[in-house]
Nucleic acid binder design. Structure first.
Length: 425
DNA sequence: TCTGGGGTCCTAGGACCC
DNA sequence: TCTGGGGTCCTAGGACCC
């Protein structure tokens, strides 16, 4: 049986989420910003047409925003996460195997659907998701994931595709690859595309049909990734649809501060906060960590006096206890803290995760059972009453701090908070 | 003045061992 | 003058993804 993959990708996902609850935004230029309202992370087609680039800092486009009356939103992760779940649930009804690839993308295994007209089937998926969730989708269909990605891009670009492009048919595959720039291939970023272009490979067709000598060069520069990309372009599938989420290998929690912070006490509060976030994720994964790292940095845009430092500490007993981890983290922080720096970002990392079987130490004085019960209670309360209901004093809850992330233009929590649910009048 | 966050995989090179 | 060979494990860094 020949393999068939579909890539379903929400169009301008964050912007589309905002539009579901405010239909007046339809047809208008809209952007959604990153934390601290720093950069553009999602933009409507209208905003794109005005020349707004992905990742553009807000201060660089403020005149464009004013001139064209672009609607601007802070990130509303609670809303996007919830909408994403709805879209994924909806998609899961259309294929036996669905891989949630990111917040706004999923791969569907459509192998064995060959008797159907795949384009029509794709259309049905799009219209159902739109009807049930309000989110517009594009779908690319092909024999490999890499080709499905390409098909998806074409579906988004060409208006007469009506959001679906099927690359499994005998026609137009070469043409599709010819019009795909190497930099648009999944797995080819800025460094590899510069390398390929230097070697005369400007599009996906030339890459697929590279001769032996060129392929050897590609293998040298890009490793097995390069070889797999070529195979996938040829229609030889190297990646399957992964239905079960893989256990995490590491957990990171870090934030850029709204205002620079110099004071050690405040940095400790920030670090304690990130530990709380990370430890909750850890317990959510049913995992414990035996390695914790803390890092600090000043603004990476001020290269003259840039300072970055990271301290890793190996734990005698693996744990997911927030309080215990805060203790270790604070000691790491004290070691890397340099007085006089204006810190702009800090974070923590957990590595060496293991799944909930704690290797006890002979000299361990801690009551592990008690700690486990405490964490379970903490998580249960925060789940029921809202995140942050109970927190450690070390995180300085309830106080306004200069390291806090700001979201000045955030839309209401339409779907996850009873107080903010939309009303139909 | 102002510039996000969280991941994965692969490779090269060093340390160490027999 | 001349200085083995190969295996494993770990880490840092690069590159990529969304």
């Amino acid at each position: 049986m020949s393999l068939v993959f579909a890539l379903a990708d929400c169009n301008n996902f964050y912007v589309s989420c905002e539009r579901v609850f405010d239909p007046k935004l339809e047809g208008k230029p809209v952007v959604v910003l990153s934390n601290n309202d720093g950069c553009v992370v999602s933009r409507s087609n209208e905003a794109r047409a005005l020349g707004i680039k992905m990742g553009a800092p807000v201060f660089e486009i403020s005149s464009l925003i004013k001139k064209h009356g672009i609607k601007v939103f802070s990130s509303n992760y609670a809303l996007y996460g919830d909408m994403s779940q709805r879209v994924m649930e909806c998609l899961s009804g259309f294929a036996k195997d669905v891989e949630v690839y990111s917040i706004d993308e999923a791969f569907l295994d459509l192998s064995g659907f060959a008797h159907e007209n795949l384009s029509d089937y794709g259309q049905r998926i799009c219209s159902t998701v739109k009807k049930w969730t309000g989110i517009p989708l594009s779908i690319g269909i092909a024999e490999t994931k890499t080709l499905a990605k390409i098909a998806n891009k074409i579906a988004k670009k060409s208006p007469d595709s009506k959001g679906v492009f099927d690359l499994t048919g005998p026609f137009c595959k070469d043409k599709a690859l010819l019009m795909t720039a190497v930099s648009d291939i999944w797995g080819v970023g800025s460094s590899y595309s510069a390398f390929l272009e230097r070697n005369g490979i400007k599009n996906a067709l030339l890459l697929r049909d590279a001769d032996a000598a060129l392929k050897a060069g590609i293998k040298r520069k890009m490793g097995v990734w390069g070889a797999r990309i070529i195979d996938e372009l040829k229609g030889i599938s190297c990646y399957s649809v992964e239905t079960r989420p893989q256990p995490k290998k590491g957990i990171t929690a870090s934030r850029t501060f709204k205002h620079p912070v110099e004071n050690l006490k405040e940095l400790k509060e920030a670090i304690a906060t990130y530990i709380s976030v990370g430890a909750e994720k850890l317990r959510d994964e049913n995992a414990v960590t035996s390695s914790i790292s803390v890092f600090l940095m000043t603004s990476r845009f001020k290269v003259e006096d840039f300072y970055y430092n990271l301290k890793t500490s190996e734990l005698p007993v693996a744990t997911s206890d927030t309080g215990e981890l805060i203790g270790y983290a604070v000691r790491c922080l004290e070691e890397i803290y340099k007085k006089g720096c204006m810190y702009k970002k800090a974070g923590i990392m957990f590595k060496d995760l293991s799944r909930s079987c704690i290797q006890l130490s002979l000299f361990d004085k801690r009551d592990r059972k008690r700690s486990e019960r405490l964490m379970q209670t903490l998580d249960a309360i925060n789940l029921k009453m809202g995140s942050g209901t109970v927190s450690y004093a070390a995180t300085a809850p309830g106080k306004v701090k200069s390291w806090h992330t700001v979201f000045e233009k955030r839309s209401p929590l339409y779907t996850t908070n009873w107080e903010q649910i939309p009303q139909v009048l």
